[in-house]
Structures are given as structure tokens and as C-alpha cells.
Design a protein around this nucleic acid. Sequence first.
RNA 1: GGGAUUGUCGGCUAGCUUGGUUUAGGCUUCGAGGUUUGGGACCUUGCGACCCAGGUUCAAAUCCUGGCAGUCCCA
Length: 477
Amino acid sequence: MSKQSKQGLTVKKDENFSEWYPELIQKAEFADYSSVKGCMIIRPNAYSIWEKIQNYFNQRIEKLNVKNAYFPLFIPESFFKKESEHAQGFKPEVAWIENKEESERLAIRPTSETIIYDSYSKWIRSHRDLPLRLNQWGNVVRWETKATRLFLRTREFLWQEGHCIYETKEECDKETLIYLKEYKKLCEDLLAIPVIMGKKTEKEKFAGALYTTSIESFMPDGKALQMATSHNLGQGFAKAFNIKYLGKDEKEHYPWQNSWGLSTRTIGALAMIHGDDQGIVLPPNIAYNKIVIVPILFDKDKEKILKKANEIKIKLKKYNPILDIRDYSPGWKFNEWELKGIPIRIELGPKDMQKKQVTLVRRDTRKKEFVKFSNLSKDIDKMLKDIQKNLFNNASKFLELNTIYVKNMDDLKRAIKNKKLVKAPFCLNTKCEDKIKDEADGAKSINIPLDQPKSIKDNCVYCNTKAKVICLFAKSY
RNA sequence: GGGAUUGUCGGCUAGCUUGGUUUAGGCUUCGAGGUUUGGGACCUUGCGACCCAGGUUCAAAUCCUGGCAGUCCCA
């Protein structure tokens, strides 16, 4: 046996974040590398999180009259090229299939606007057909050449993409924001990750969109991570795909469209934000198994303890407890379940039996509590809610502490170097944005928060002319 | 596109400088048996590797050339 304790991870989060993260993901059995470069295997521990996100989100969008559907993985090149900005934007990362029998190449979808809108052009004839709201769950391929990272940047990933189409710009604007707010709610309520809603700059908007809104979170290593986007596509795709409807006025009109997406990337953010040196920390609302019961079995009391452990398991059924009776030492099991992030551990041994109690250990603080059998359900419920709240509060505090306002480039550069999320007055000029990126070590505009001050007194952080907005800048994933 | 660097059991690695007692060693994982079990237990035992192709040599994991694969810089 080696002398050092093998507990937790070998790399510390604070000391070497970029090695800590892949070790965390692999040891927690969230994902593994595959033999295909840039592609990963999502293992059950992480896939159950994705399923939870799917179930939650399906319920939410059903209330917004969105229906699920599925469109092909392959997109004919001619469709792909119809909207030129869109085609140009995705060009570097599209994977193609050469098709010998037919003349046309097929793109493996990097996003599905074009294949979906081809159908919309056939389905939509009258204002009575609008609005049309569809969502699909699927995979997309973006052939990254840069370094890939588990969950955060892989060549293939899972997501949902919603595609809605409306009569008026007002309706489209309004709902584009509704979906963005849904994403915020999902991140905050389910994943315990605080996010900032905002609008992307012209430079960073979706290729082919009128404008893009996003929710952004901030990682412990000082990089921003885009969690989801909602685009108002304007009428550009409608014109390119000849989607028209006859209005009440008996005239032809182009409709307005939006699209919105959230991917498995959020699982990476979840691991980064809440994880610690012991492993993953799952917010209770996203955990499938909220509890693990570890019986401490000595020969003499073995049967009594097992019986009680089973009773507890049945009593707490709604939390999907795991009863771990495998032939490992208790300490081994403690470490294993902490690595995997189960919110609460229940220990039950001879000492507990005597006192008619269990030992509860919460994953976020790892503090022990002793709870009488009779109070168990109530206390568990309270503890789970408290863990959820605590994780969100900690992440919010981190975000707040690491966001700073700057008025000039020196301060901006320093803040970026210090791994901060920077708020700065900005003129919205793309040239300034490029310069900032050049001079501040690759920091990009993150988004322009929806929450803006009533008036902006300071001048643009770069060119010192009148600033139009307060914009977020940071290095990003 | 240019440069640097690395390929050894499932994972981490020792050995390479100076070729030879190495049956390629260790830790971990995995399998079996036993003793254990309140923070990754112990003993016994088993399975398991030199990226590929040439070359140099009496002798190559080790040196040379090429290929393939990875990683990191630079443009």
C-alpha cells in the first residue's frame, strides 16, 4: 500500500485547474475519451444529468406550445449555402460527406436551421399556420481543429435546438427572450449555476442572425462559458428559403424566426463550478440518486444493520437512494461516492443502531450530522434544499467577487491577467473589440448584459469616445 | 505551414545518457482465495506491455533512418 492517501483526486483544483478538470470528469465516470479524436463517450453518471435536463426542459417548453420533432442529420450543400452569412460562419467547421451516386455533397449538421427551414417553406402558407414552434433533441458535429476538452469542446455533442416562426418582429423578439429566460431558470434552479443574460456584439452573434442573446457563466479558472443562446434570426432565412405566408391583408409576407439551443456543455460547467478536490458535487435537483446509504457491517450486527438499511432505503424511495453493500471497506465507499458527487451519504453502523440514529454527511460541506430515525425524512428534505441553495450562493458569490468594472485599457488588461470577468463601457465598434482582443491576451466580448444602467457616463474603454453600453469582456471557452 | 518533444501491461511509470544478470521492475486497476470493515484494509496468488517498418551490431526497449500517433509552442 502506498503511504499517501489515495483519497479524492491527485490534482488540486486550486493548483492545476486544467489537469484537475479532466481527471475529475474521468474519475467520476462522467465521460471518457474515445478512439475517435475529439469525440467523447458520455457515461451513465453524466447521461442521467442530461436526461434530467431533457425531462425538465421538455415540460417547460410544452407549456410554451413547443412540440418536439426530428430532422435529418445530413444537409445538402445547396441548402447550406442559401443564407450566405450562415454558410460563411460555419464553413471552417463543417464535416462533409462526398456522395458518389448523387452529385451533391452532404454536410453533417453543425446546426439545423437550413434543413428545417426547407421544410418550413413547404408547410407555411397562411397566417393561420403561424406561429410554428418546434424543438429537436439531437447531435451536431463541428469539426474543431483546436484542442478539444471533455464536454466543453468536442467534435460531436448533444443539444436541443428550438426553431420558431412568427408573423411579427414583436412576437419574435418577445419569445426569443422567453426562451433565454427559460435557460436562465434551468441553469439556476436545476444546475445551481448563476448566469448573466445579455446580447452578443455584432462580432460574436450567430452567423445569419439579426441578433443573438446568450446566458453566460464564469468558471473558477477565470474563463467565461456560454451556457445557451437564443437568436432572433430576423427574416434572412425566410428570404433565403422562400418562406412566405399570406396575411390577413391578403398579401404575401416574410415571417420572423428565432432559434435557441443548449448543449451538453452545461454538464462541463456544472462539474467545474461545483467540483472540489474530492470530486464532483451534484446539486440535489440534478442528481438522480440523491442519497447513498453505506452500512458499516461488523459480523455480530450484520443482519440487524442490513435490515434497517433496507427499511431506510424504502422509506426514502423518492430520493432514489443507493444501498451500497459491495465488499469494499466503508472508507473506500465514502471516497467513491464523494468522487461521484452524491449529495447526501447516510452511514449506519452499530453505534448508530444503539442510539437509534443515522450519520448524515452532506457532500457540499462534508459535515457530519446525527439524525434520529424518526426525523429522517424531514431532515433529509431540509438538507437537500439547503445544499442546493448553498451551491448556488457559493457560485453567485464567486461570480460577484470576480466581476470588476474598469474604465481604461490598463485596468482592463490587468483585470484579464488576474482572471476576472470585466465590465467595461464600450462604443460597440467592432474595431475596438478586435483591438481589445489583441491587447488583452485574447479576451473577447462575452455579452452586453440586459441589465444596463440608466445612463452611461464613462467613455469607451478603448477609444474613449462616447460609450453606448456596458459590456462584459473575459477570456472564454 | 514551421519548430520542439513524447510513444513501455487497462491507467501511472522505472529502465534509454554509457546496447549485455531483465525472465523488462514498481505502483495502481482487474480476477481468485483468505482475514477484514466508523475515511480509499492486509496477506497469498493470478492476468497483463517495449507504436510500426527497416538499419547498425555477436547482442536493441535502449543507437540510426523512415512511417504512424499524441502533446506543446510559433505563424
